[in-house]
Design a protein around this nucleic acid. Sequence first.
DNA 1: AAACTAAACTAACAAGTGTTAGTTTGGTAT
DNA 2: ATACCAAACTAACACTTGTTAGTTTAGTTT
Lengths: 205, 205
Amino acid sequence: MISNNSFNLFFIFQRSMKKETRKQEIINTAAKLFKEKGYSAVTMRDLATAMGIKAASLYNHINSKQDILKAIIISIAEEFTSGMSNITNSEVSSISKLKSIVKLHVNITSNNTYAMASLNNDWMHLEDQLNYYLRLRNDYETNFLNIIKDGISSSEIKNSNPEIVMFSMLTTLRSLYLWIPKKEDLNANDLAHNLSEVLIEGINK
Amino acid sequence: MISNNSFNLFFIFQRSMKKETRKQEIINTAAKLFKEKGYSAVTMRDLATAMGIKAASLYNHINSKQDILKAIIISIAEEFTSGMSNITNSEVSSISKLKSIVKLHVNITSNNTYAMASLNNDWMHLEDQLNYYLRLRNDYETNFLNIIKDGISSSEIKNSNPEIVMFSMLTTLRSLYLWIPKKEDLNANDLAHNLSEVLIEGINK
DNA sequence: AAACTAAACTAACAAGTGTTAGTTTGGTAT
DNA sequence: ATACCAAACTAACACTTGTTAGTTTAGTTT
């Protein structure tokens, strides 16, 4: 009986894994389409066609269109939150922290170029999870701003308007998803390094 | 007869002006809604409600939803093209040109915060004008990149990757529409100046 | 008073939307 | 062989979409 039980459990496990895989394919395909046209302009029939199946068949794997958006956005938003938490808790200089933030963005974006488009452009179409997303984003920006303010206080960073500094850095980092796919030759480390240079040291000789 | 003619012409003119005004109100309202939810997610009934009329009444003033998008995007894209043309034709240093580009973006964005959202996010929903828009954008970026390359050649600008420099500057400038409305206290000149400092001189002390 | 006109209206359309219900298919485990 | 099941299918639903046609309203010109 015990072997029978664990045998069944294994197949239940295997099945759920398989289903996750197919579900994930749908989510990945959706992310691609969302990047091109935006959430609202992509229909379930568009998505089905891209998957080579009929629209109704999608619902064997996902609960709703909204659930797909949620799956795309929330997981990445939480990755950023977790990454930022590590950075704020580290005992290094403000400039080092900023460089870590650049790395965080380059790494996450390199691995999720499509999903990053939805994170940036389709978050307002979240329904149940909208407030949660906004809270995560707000916390992230607060932490970011505090790092810059600390850097100014400790004279590491020029006495510029800290909000402008954050705005400039963050918008550049948020747009990486548009740029990374065009420059596959540049690896993540090089890009992060170059970007840190430009953002932190400026471009004036 | 002559006076009669010019009399009629005046009223035709006046009428077309009045119609333009109402049309412009619709376009401005549409731009606001497009900024919040994106072109595809805004229905003609949404727009009508925001105007306090019925959807069908909109068609007394505009030809189609697509025409509204066209009106929003193309006029601003041409403003950028024209501004860039003035800058490339001016005989000043590369750094000065870059500062003029910052000013150009700050000025246009200050006067068109809603329309800038469509320019950035809804251009892909252009139909007949899509190729024209893409050509304008491509020319703009080419000019921008050449200014940076010239600056590197003449040793005004650090020998960084010119595409990263442009990417960093341009994405910051493109995101201004999100930021300017939140900081009404900062006037356009101050913002342009601060932004130039951050983008060009960096933030490291 | 009569004619005109800008700008609203009501009613309807054809097509497209997300989604559900129930069914078929083809491979795998018993 | 048989039972099972993931994953596809067909058919349909209720609703929303952009848009058109024809009409009414209210103010202005003749």
